[in-house]
Structure formats: C-alpha cells, structure tokens
Design a protein around this nucleic acid. Structure first.
Lengths: 193, 193
DNA sequence: CAAGTATTAGTACCAGGTTATAAACTACTT
DNA sequence: AAGTAGTTTATAACCTGGTACTAATACTTG
C-alpha cells in the first residue's frame, strides 16, 4: 500500500478534495487522507499546489479583478474610432475573467457592456443614459477572441438616440443590439445625416 | 491635525484604500496613510474591518462556497435565493465604480449584468447562454443604492428558457428585462460533463 | 496647567504555513 | 537475512500577518 501507486492515488484524491473545497488546511487534508501533515506538504510541493492562504488569495483576486474588468471606465474595450453623434468602433480582447471557466465562452453581459458603453459614448452629452435595449447573441465568443463592436446612430428624436451596434469576431457577426439612449443633460450635439 | 477630525478623515481614507484594493497589509496601509501600524490596527478594530487574510477568505468564499450547491460564482451581485429552473433573487450594492462619476448614476451595463447573470444561473445546466434580451431602464439608479433583482422563468420550450427579471431599489422598479436563455449543455438540466 | 484623547511602541502569542534535516518504515532485491 | 532505494514521518527553526494587551508618549483643549 505504501508503493508509488498508493501515492499517485492519494495525490489524485488530494487534488479532488481541494477542487471541491479549496479552503482545507494541510491538517484537515492529512486527516481525511489518513497520512501525516508532512506527507501532505510533500504532495502539495510535488503538485505545485499553494498553501491555503495563497489559494484563498488567488480565488479572491480572480473574482475581484472581474469586478474591475467590468468597471466604470469610459468605454469597455478600446475605442478605435469615434464620430460623436454618428458612429464609432471599439475593440475588446476576451480575457479569462470574462468567460465561463468551464466552457471558455464569454459571458453575455461583457458583450453587452462593450456595446452599451459604446452606444452611450456616441451621444455627445455630459449625461446620456440607456433607456431600452434589444440585443441578440448570434454566436458564442471564446477566450482569446477579439471583438470589434461597430455602433451607429440610426435615428434622433429630440433627446432620444437610437443606436445600432453590431459586434464581430473575425468578420463574423456574434452580437447585435439596438439601444435607445437618452441625453439627459439636454445640450447634446445631435447630428445625424 | 491629530484631533478627531484627522482621525475621521484617515478612517475614511482607510476604507477607500481597502475598497480599491482589499489586499493591502496593515503595514502598507500605515505607510500610505503616514501613521503607525498600531494606529491602523486600532482603526480597523473601530471600523470592524477584518485582517487581510480574512478579507481574502471572505471575498473568495463569497464567490466560491455557494458553488457546491449552485453556480453562485457566475452571478454578479449576491445571490439571495435560487430555485433552479424557477426563480431567484440577487442583491447588488452600487459602488462608485459602477456609476458615472459626474452624475453618480449607475451605468446601464451593470444593471444588465446583474440581471443577465441571474437569468443564466436560473437555468439548471452546466452551460447556459443568453440568446436574446429586451431590457428597459425605468429609473436611474444611484451610488449607494441596493438593487434587488428578482428573476423568474416564465416559459420553457425545449431547451429555450424565457426569463423575466425585474430589479428594484426600495420597492421601486428601476429595470426590467426579458431574457431568452438557451441550455446548450443538454435538455432540461441534463448533465454533460 | 491638567485632563483626556489619540497615537505609538513593545511584548507575548497564534495559525498556517516554508525549509531543511534526520529518522523510520516499506518493498524488493540479492 | 541483509542491503538498499523509495516513501513517509518527525522535529526544529523560521516566516508573515496578524490578535490581544499593556505602557508610554504626544497633542489638543477646557
């Protein structure tokens, strides 16, 4: 039982235990696997598994930076082109914080955020707010993809702007949406041809 | 400067620093605020702010511990209630990272993100994706508001789920949306791993 | 000035480790 | 049965980022 097969099995079990609950101390792991704490430490070293505190820190940092990724900057993504009141383009690289870890498919609200923030940015106003939106997800977007959102104002009615946004990955339409943005500040430089 | 006004200001600054980066040690905080570590400890005690490791653990656990029972880590906001395939509620506090700095009004995509992630979480599947969404912003949401999103599945057609989400601030409807979520992994919550 | 508050300094202690070293237990061979 | 290598356990010294507590000092204000 103390051969290298037993060790392999134990290490597999160790990984499984930590996958299910990363907040176990070495002592608890040792107890569950019926070996000493020293063995657990050796196993962790061999498997390059960090200590409990580090694991917690990594998980926390991961979910924390996700909030940051969706932070209220000017525009979500990089603004490539912007003609106020008319059209604009932004590009967003899909990082691993934006995807479902299991499938590596981008979570919908990030695509929405890119489009929404671009639509709002198009309106030349101190304060523009989204009123309504109808969006459609055409194709899954994956980790590593480069999403290009192209937005254009399609209609202006007083303070109401209608903005059409289409997002592409390698020239393939992955998302489209129609946003109604309201210029609340009122002194918009509304221009539409 | 060492009066109680200075202390109040420092404590505010302390909270602000930790809000921006919760992974600061007492030593780093002391350095940044130009006081001793002892003072930082006293301030943390007074403000009931736990130590670094505890903060990391709380952040990590907040998005991890629910994972065992459900896909809580995928939800923006705090999951308050979740009946898979039926309905759910999540609560999101509006921080200043989510608002336009000028007006302190919440940016639309955060409200969308809360609703969208809740809608997706409702579907009892390993992989559910948003297909379409129609959303409407009823009233501006401001910094400090507590947004409660209530979602309910209104129809199921094979692997297509229709989910209605209404978000409230103090019982006032601020946002509503209709999401169509597709269960890609399998039909009716079947597991494909 | 004295009093009271705010701050700093220092000590003992803790959890949950790391690192290094030594000893003990297997399994297997010769 | 003894030797040997691989595996496991034990032990001790040290580390970070704290808690809990006490004592001393600085600052402000009545």
């Amino acid at each position: 039982m103390k051969g290298s097969e037993g060790r392999k099995a134990r290490r597999k079990a160790l990984e499984e235990l930590l996958r299910r609950d990363p907040f176990l101390t070495d002592w608890q792991l040792a107890d569950q696997l019926g070996v000493s704490v020293a063995t657990i430490r050796l196993d962790r070293m061999a498997l390059a598994i960090p200590e409990l505190r580090e694991r917690a820190r990594i998980i926390a940092a991961g979910t924390y930076s996700e909030v940051k990724a969706l932070r209220g900057e000017e525009v979500i993504g990089d603004l490539v082109e912007l003609n106020l009141g008319r059209d604009g383009t932004s590009v967003l690289m899909v990082t691993d914080q934006m995807v479902f870890s299991r499938s590596q498919i981008m979570r919908g609200h990030h695509l929405f955020a890119q489009a929404n923030s671009l639509a709002v940015a198009l309106v030349d106003s101190d304060l523009a707010l989204t009123k309504t939106a109808q969006v459609s997800y055409r194709r899954p977007v994956k980790l590593g993809d480069r999403v290009m959102a192209k937005a254009a104002v399609t209609a202006v009615e007083g303070y109401r702007y209608q903005v059409q946004v289409n997002s592409f990955v390698r020239d393939e339409l992955v998302f489209s949406g129609e946003f109604v943005v309201v210029d609340v500040a009122g002194k918009g430089g509304a221009k539409v041809d």
